[in-house]
Simulated scan of single mutants.
Amino acid sequence: MNYFKSFSERVLNLQGNEFDALALELFRFQAQHNLIYSAYLKARGLEVEAVSTVEQIPFLPIQFFKSHAVISGPSSDYADFYSSSGTTGQITSRHWIWEESFYLQHAQRIFEQHYGDLTDFHVLAMLPAYLERKGSSLVSMADHFIKKTGSDYSGFYLYNYDMLIDQLLKIRHLQDGKKVLLLGVTFALLDLAEQFGEDFPPLDQLIIMETGGMKGRRKEMIREEVHEVLKRGLKVSSIHSEYGMTELFSQAYSDGEGLYKLPASMKVFLRDVNDPLSWSDKGQGGVNIIDLANFHSCAFIETQDLGKYDEKGMLKILGRFDNSEVRGCNLMVN
């Protein structure tokens, strides 16, 4: 447990030039203490001592979170887990939690570095499919954000859209200079835009942020189509996005156009779509993520997402591999 405490403090106070050194230290630690990752490295025939750069670190396929307890250290150090939403009949991922307070503190730090202090916000969360089950890391994060705002106008909404509109009208009347974050699963935001678009109150400092997720409630749409519908219906010029998943403890945020700025604790490498053990030389490929906040599980994840970097170094998520299982939080994109 002492090593987790040390890692958590270093992640929370991470400087940009410290990433590679901490990633290599975590690799050596998890290669020894994470039984699943260690077995995977042995199956790959990898010599741990031969790894000297982050580019040489192998990435664990994300499917292992569905079939195994991906933990570093004894199971007695873990009391609970976050679980993915999935769809009916799917096996969901489990990400065991060392200390929830670290996850929440880390999530707050990432958000505030991107958007500013939560005390300057009213946060209204529309996460019906997540609120209707247990174990959602997104709900835990949103609940923490709501509490940190200290605002009586912050809160959760299921399908009570009338109450949400009424709350937004009250906030607009306040004129307190605070920003408003409307954080929502995609199908709920689309429902809101289509049902209340004519009556939706325009706010000067409104941020609409979609988290993905049709949950089988609506037909899949490309991201650009979703964002156009939301911009028209909710009277904003851009739609923000959060890129996160149950298997990661860090999040990335987009201010629009689906382009994500990565937090200090995360790096993304693109692998060849036909050879997962090679890096892509085509400007796009499969998304491999180093998340230093995963010091308690596995920090090196081979996802089923496809991505590319633009000329400014911003990450764009293009979609998922055709042969991958559709994830419960999937938002199909170009």
Rank of each mutant, 00 (worst) to 15 (best):
L183T: 00
N13S: 15
Y253F: 15
G184F: 08
R217E: 07
K308T: 08
S75Q: 11
G256V: 02
D152H: 11
T303E: 14
T88W: 04
S137K: 09
M266T: 15
L118R: 03
W279Y: 15
S154H: 06
V139A: 13
L306Y: 01
T211M: 04
Q32D: 12
E311G: 05
T87H: 08
I165N: 07
F4W: 09
S6N: 13
N34C: 14
K66G: 00
G286N: 05
K134D: 11
Y309M: 08
K42H: 10
N274G: 13
H106E: 06
Q251N: 15
H95Y: 14
I62M: 15
N323I: 05
V185K: 04
H33A: 13
I207G: 00
V11L: 05
V229H: 12
M141G: 00
G197T: 01
H95L: 15
L41N: 04
L183K: 04
S278F: 08
L131W: 04
L24R: 10
S254R: 08
E25D: 15
A142W: 08
H227D: 14
G86L: 09
K215M: 03
K42T: 00
L60F: 05
S297G: 02
G86H: 11
G45L: 08
K134P: 00
K215A: 11
G216M: 12
L181F: 12
G328Y: 07
A252E: 02
Q205D: 15
L35W: 03
G197F: 12
M141H: 02
L234T: 01
N323G: 00
L174F: 12
D204P: 02
Q167H: 12
Y130C: 10
L292D: 01
M332P: 04
T88K: 11
D120N: 15
H122W: 07
S137D: 05
S250E: 04
A43K: 14
A252M: 06
N288G: 08
L262V: 03
L14V: 02
I171L: 12
R172H: 11
E210S: 11
A79V: 10
T246F: 09
G197P: 09
D322R: 14
E247Y: 09
H240Y: 12
N334Q: 13
T53Q: 14
K42Q: 15
Q304G: 14
E198F: 07
A125C: 15
E247P: 02
Y103M: 08
F300H: 04
S136W: 11
V236C: 12
Q90V: 01
D80A: 09
